[in-house]
Every structure is written in structure tokens, then in C-alpha cells.
Design a binder for these strands. Structure first.
Lengths: 128, 128
DNA sequence: TTAACTGTACTATAACGGTTAGTACAGTTG
DNA sequence: CAACTGTACTAACCGTTATAGTACAGTTAA
């Protein structure tokens, strides 16, 4: 399900939130699905429960999951969650752009990459 | 030449290395050009000389610049290293775009993010 | 009711990275 | 010699991340 790269500089709780968002985007997790409990996931990943709890708290604050004390944490159903996921994806992309710029890539280069990805061969854009 | 965003979570030395690579990519700095001294750049940016030194050390390790004790630091003539960094950064960015698309972000959203980043970043300050 | 689970809320601490501060030494230049 | 250059240290501070431990409240099933 979710794998953690302990060598990475990306915080573990970030990897968890990203992993769950990805799982929902891919359709593996759907609205109403129950997530592993804080303690069980921590045990499975070999990390501290507090770290999992932090990830779940962030996901809940973003509306991606909802938690019920005593019952567990579940994937959110409402469309607000989808918006939250979009927002989260946008944030991730923003970091990627910042990184690209820091590495010296100019804007034109980025635009070229985007065109390459978003134009699968048949293009419907009129200008350019 | 280089501006530092002190609010950013991106380390200052990373911003410096990226800035110099970018300046070389843009053609502002060319092979053999002399860089500001460790102490003068630190003074100009209002940071500690150690931080600049760290950035220069990284750039030298990557083959982007070369330093001569007593003389200064200079842009390397061999652009292979810089090109390699650009290439790897482009690959990384490409994966980020693919991911963003998979997450459901449309092209306009990506363009907006790019504009946001590339508008406030590079400044050609003549004062200070 | 009891027991075992669930989320949640704390405090304390360790570890790490980034940055600053200060000092020192060696090479270059005028 | 004086003033610059890069370089190499050590020490300290701070914020973030992660761990550790404890505690409390809600849920569920035996």
C-alpha cells in the first residue's frame, strides 16, 4: 500500500499523506473506505504512532479523510475532498516548479515539457 | 544578480547554487567569469560567509565552478556538468507534470502556478 | 460491565539540518 | 607589508521531525 523511504528528506508524515491521496486518486481507496488505525499503521510501517496521527490530522484538516473517535478514520465522500486533493496536487506541483527554477530551468523549458505531456499527439490549441 | 527569499523553506545555499546555475543558463555568466568573493557576496546578501562558502563548495563539487585559493571563484569552462544538472532537473520536472496530470490538474492550472513562481523570482537589481 | 479497540491531546526529549559566529591559516596581489 | 582571496575548523542557536510515554474519551463486542 504505502511505502516509506526513510532515507528521503521528505518527512514521513508527508509521504503518508501523499500516499493516501495517491491511493484515492488511483481508485484503490474510495469514499467511505476505512483506513488502518493510527497504531496499526505505525506498527506496520515501523514508525511512531504520533507520526501517523500527524498525517491523519493533516488529511482531515484538508477534508480528504474524516476521523471518528473510537471508530476509525475513513476516506471522505463529499466533493470537497476532491477539491482538497486538487489543491494538494497543486501544492505539490508548485514545489516542483520552485525546484525546477532553482535548478536553473527557464520558463520556456517548462512550457515545452507541459506541452509534451498535455498534447498527446492530437492538439486542439489554436495559437502557438 | 541573485535574490534570496528568507521566508522560503528552501535553504539559502540552495538558492545561491540555483541562482548561479540559472545565471549561467541565461548567459549572464560565462565560462571564466569571476564570481563575487565569499565574503562580499555574503555581505551583499546579508548572510553568513559560511553559507556562501557552502554554496560555492557544492558548485565546485558539481563542476559548475572552480575556486583558486587567493584568487577567487570562477565559472567553469566545461558546461557538461551544468548541462547534466539541467537535464536531470528537466526529467524530474517532467515526472512532476505527469503526476499533476494524473491527479487531475488541467493545463491552465499548471500555467498559473508557473506564472506565479516565475514572476517574483529572478530580479536584476542594479541598486544595493 | 469489562476488555480491547478507536482517535486525540498532551509533555518531554532526541536527532538532524540550516545558519550564524568567530577564529585561524594559506595563497595571491599590488 | 597590507588587503584581499579561498578554506577549515569549532561552537552555538533554532526550527522541524520523530520518538517516547502517558492519559482520556468514544466505540464495539464478548
Amino acid at each position: 500500500m504505502i511505502t516509506i523511504d526513510y532515507k528521503s528528506r521528505v518527512p514521513i508524515y508527508d509521504q503518508i499523506t501523499g500516499g493516501i491521496i495517491r491511493l484515492k486518486t488511483l481508485g484503490v481507496l474510495k469514499g467511505g473506505d476505512k483506513l488502518p488505525s493510527v497504531r496499526s499503521l505505525a506498527l506496520k510501517l515501523g514508525i511512531n504512532p504520533n507520526t501517523v496521527q500527524k498525517a491523519y490530522a493533516i488529511l482531515e484538516a484538508d477534508g480528504i479523510i474524516y476521523s471518528v473517535s473510537g471508530k476509525g478514520s475513513f476516506i471522505s465522500e463529499d466533493s470537497a475532498a476532491a477539491d482538497a486533493i486538487l489543491e494538494s496536487a497543486a501544492d505539490e506541483f508548485k514545489m516542483a516548479v520552485e525546484n525546477a527554477r532553482r535548478m536553473g530551468l527557464d520558463r520556456a523549458r517548462l512550457e515545452a515539457v507541459i506541452s509534451e505531456i498535455y498534447e498527446g499527439g492530437i492538439t486542439d490549441d489554436k495559437n502557438s
